[in-house]
């Protein structure tokens, strides 16, 4: 591995790949990674048995008491990891889709994928009466089936990013109606369970969820990060990107697939957590001032956003066990509002 300094950043070469990294991005990545670690440790201190941050760290590295190790490793670590990974997966999905569609609203929430997962989950809860694991499976099937149908519809006409978005809007509208129908037809117990699932929750998440998202992120995040330079070129318009040698259709095909997979698996594990996919990439672009999709920064931003929300929801509503989704939107919304207000006030 060779690193060389050029005027605008650090070039990292490894395994035949070379990437230029801006110093600002490096700092942001380091800060966000540290924040993610701190937030996770803090959120693992809260619960029936309250632990100090020191005890949590000790338990994580095998030096705790039997009780603290049991609590941390069996119950709280899977929850914290599910949160971090789902946040990262949703954020990367949003970053890729926003870049491919060149539209700030082009997140998986708006173009049908999350809605499809919700339909799968609602059918499982309300019609089939399934429990948590069956619901996850139903959501996964729903999300992937929706994406497959959209692909099938759009591919016959050549994969154009904009057409995919419009078809997604239509599919999302249709599925949303189905979801509403299911909720109004259910008895109140199923409807409340469905509503809770629809808010997005990390309560009682265990290792199977962690493993599912971890595998997905490990496979798809590097792909997105490596190909993000292609997206940066594509944001300048198809003709320019084509002239720069970017294979347009395969790139779109693969990256939309990756974004779909990430969103579907994350949603299956946690339910549709609002706002992360929309806000995290925007926040990441704002803090790194990068051109193009800041894939890695977005991932960390999503992880921090969800981790911090989970800490907040456990601290504020301790006994009520409310789902994390109700706080992510507030945390993300307030942060976004603050960031915007600060930026607007700064400019004259």
């Amino acid at each position: 591995m060779v690193t060389a300094r050029v005027t605008t950043g650090v070039v990292v070469r490894a395994f035949g790949v070379s990437v230029r990294v801006a110093p600002r991005t490096l700092v942001v990545v380091a800060v966000l990674a540290a924040l993610a670690a701190v937030v996770s440790v803090l959120s693992m201190t809260v619960g029936q048995v309250s632990l100090s941050p020191g005890e949590v760290v000790a338990a994580l590295f095998g030096g705790g008491t039997p009780v603290s190790e049991m609590v941390v490793l069996r119950l709280r670590l899977p929850r914290a990891l599910t949160g971090l990974l789902a946040g990262a997966a949703l954020a990367v999905s949003g970053a890729l889709l926003q870049s491919i569609t060149r539209n700030v609203l082009g997140s998986p929430d708006f173009i049908g994928i999350t809605t499809g997962s919700a339909t799968g989950a609602l059918i499982t809860i309300i019609v089939l009466g399934g429990g948590m694991h069956q619901t996850s499976l139903g959501a996964l099937v729903g999300g992937l089936a929706t994406a497959a149908v959209m692909y099938a519809l759009v591919l016959r006409r050549g994969l154009q990013g904009f057409r995919f978005v419009l078809v997604g809007v239509g599919v999302a509208a249709l599925l949303l109606a189905v979801n509403y129908y299911l909720i109004t037809r259910a008895d109140i117990y199923d409807a409340v369970a469905a509503q809770e699932w629809l808010t997005g929750s990390l309560n009682l998440r265990t290792w199977p969820q962690v493993i599912a998202i971890a595998v997905t992120v490990a496979l798809l995040l590097p792909l997105g990060a490596l190909w993000s330079r292609r997206l940066t070129a594509m944001e300048m318009g198809d003709p320019i990107a084509g002239a720069l040698g970017v294979p347009l259709v395969p790139t779109r095909l693969v990256l939309i697939g990756a974004a779909t997979g990430l969103a579907a698996v994350a949603t299956a594990a946690t339910g549709p957590i609002a706002f992360v996919a929309l806000a995290a990439p925007q926040l990441a672009r704002a803090v790194t001032r990068a051109n193009g999709p800041a894939v890695l920064t977005s991932a960390l931003m999503g992880a921090v956003l969800l981790g911090a929300s989970d800490f907040a929801v456990q601290r504020i509503f301790g006994t009520a066990q409310l789902p994390v989704g109700i706080v992510t939107s507030a945390v993300g919304g307030l942060y976004l509002a603050w960031l915007l207000a600060a930026r607007w006030r700064g400019r004259t």
């Binding site: 609002a274 706080v327 919304g333 976004l336």
Partner: peptide, 9 residues
């Protein structure tokens, strides 16, 4: 979007 998100909570 920001106001909606807070109200959603």
């Amino acid at each position: 979007a920001a106001v909606s998100a807070v109200l959603f909570t």
